[in-house]
Design a protein around this nucleic acid. Structure first.
Lengths: 205, 205
DNA sequence: CTGGATTTTCAATAATCCGTGAAAGAAGGC
DNA sequence: GCCTTCTTTCACGGATTATTGAAAATCCAG
C-alpha cells in the first residue's frame, strides 16, 4: 500500500546501522552480548550470506571478535554456515524466521538459566523438609559443616519458621516451574506458536 | 505431608544464604543487578521487615550499596517501606506474592526495554516506506546528512531491496508487538494470571 | 607435502560495570 | 535552633567483562 520512494544507498545503510544499534542495545538489556546481537542483526537485515571479513568491516570489530560472535551465534542455532563455490571463505546466514529465532533464544535461556535455578530450589526444599521416606544414608548435605559453630545464635528454630521457609521456597518453585513449563510448551510448538498463544490469551483473560 | 526435622539455626541461615545466592545469580542473568536481586531474596526469604543495617550486615555490602539497591527495589515496586514505632530507621518489606512480583518485573521490563525498541522500529519503518498520505512538512529525518557523501557506493537502491528491508523490519515489528501485547495483557490481569495462562495454553497448543 | 588462505585461540589491553565509604543531606527530638 | 540519627549521593577504585591483534592451528589445492 505504501509508495516506495527511491532512497540513496547511504540512507539504506544508515537505516541498517540504526537497526543494528537498536537490536544490539536490546540484546545487551537481555543477557546477550551487544556484539553478538549486532552481528545477528547485521546478517538478518542485510538478508544475505556474509563472511567474517564482511562482518568485521561493516561493524568495525576485530577479526577475533567477529569469529567468536559468529561461532556463538552458530552454537545458539541462530545462524547457519554456508559456502560459495570457488570461495574458500565461510559464509553465515541468519535464521530468517523471527518466530523460530525467538523459540531458539528461549530454549537456550531456559536451559542455561531456569533449569539450574529449578535444581537449586528443589535441593533447598529437600534440605529443610526431609520426607520420612528418605533413605537413611542419602548424602543430603547442607553447606559444609567444618567451621566451628559460633557460640551465639543457638536458639532453636521453631517449627513455624521452618514451615514458613518451606512455603516461600515452594511458592517460588511453583512460579519458576510454571515459567519453565510455559516456555517448554512454546519451544516445543512449531510455527508461530507465540502468535497463536497471544491470540488465544487475548480472548481468555 | 512432610515431617519437619529440627534443624539448627546455622543450617537455616545456610539455606537462606544459598537461596539468596541462587536468586542473585538468576537476577544477574536477567538484566537485574546481582546485589539488587540478592537484597530482594533476603527480604523475601526471611519474611520480615529489615532495615538498611540488617541488609548490610547479612549481605556484607556497604551502606551505599544497600541504600541504592533498596531504593531501586522500591522504585520497581518490589519492596515497600515501613516504620516501627519508637524506631527511626526505615524498614523494608518484600512483595510477598511471587505472582505479583513477576507481574511487576515484567511491567518494568516492558516499559524500559520493549517500548523503546518498538519506537525505534516504527521510526525506521517510516523512514524507508513513506506513505503517500504523509504530511509534506513532517520532520521525517534519517540520521543527519551533514557529512559529505563518499564518492563511491552510489549505485541506486532497487525497489526490491527496499521492499526486503521493509519486510524484515515488519516481521520483527510484529514479533515485538506480540510480545508487548502479551506482556501488557499479563501485567494487566490480576492474581495468578500467569498460572492461568499456562493452564490455558497447555490445553490449546 | 608445501604454501597460502582462512579461522581460531588467547594473553594483553581496554571498556564497562559495580561497590565503597566519606561527606553531604534530611528528618526528628529536645 | 542544634544535635543526633539515619539516608542519600557520588567520585574513586576495584572487579568483571569485552575486544583486540598477533600467533597458532586448520584447511585445501596443487
Amino acid at each position: 500500500m505504501g509508495r516506495h520512494e527511491t532512497i540513496s544507498r547511504r540512507q539504506l545503510v544508515q537505516v541498517q546501522d540504526r537497526f543494528i544499534a537498536a537490536w544490539g542495545q536490546m540484546g545487551a538489556a537481555w543477557g546477550v552480548s551487544r556484539t553478538m546481537a549486532e552481528v545477528y542483526a547485521l546478517l538478518y537485515i542485510t538478508a544475505q550470506p556474509l563472511n567474517t571479513d564482511d562482518v568485521m568491516d561493516r561493524l568495525r570489530i576485530s577479526r577475533g571478535n567477529a569469529s567468536m560472535s559468529l561461532r556463538a551465534l552458530a552454537e545458539w542455532g541462530l545462524v547457519s554456515r554456508a559456502h560459495k563455490r570457488g570461495d574458500r571463505k565461510e559464509y553465515f546466514i541468519a535464521e530468517q524466521d523471527v518466530w523460530a529465532l525467538s523459540r531458539k533464544v528461549m530454549r537456550e535461556r531456559l536451559r542455561r538459566e531456569v533449569l539450574p535455578l529449578l535444581a537449586t530450589l528443589h535441593e533447598l526444599r529437600d534440605a529443610t523438609d526431609n520426607r520420612t521416606e528418605q533413605p537413611a544414608g542419602a548424602p543430603l548435605r547442607l553447606a559444609s559443616d567444618d567451621e566451628p559453630a559460633p557460640a551465639d545464635a543457638r536458639k532453636p528454630v521453631t517449627a513455624a519458621e521452618v514451615r514458613q521457609l518451606n512455603d516461600r521456597i515452594d511458592s517460588l518453585l511453583e512460579l519458576v516451574q510454571t515459567v519453565d513449563r510455559l516456555g517448554e510448551r512454546f519451544v516445543g510448538s512449531d510455527g508461530k506458536g507465540l502468535r497463536l498463544a497471544a491470540n488465544m490469551l487475548s480472548k481468555i483473560i
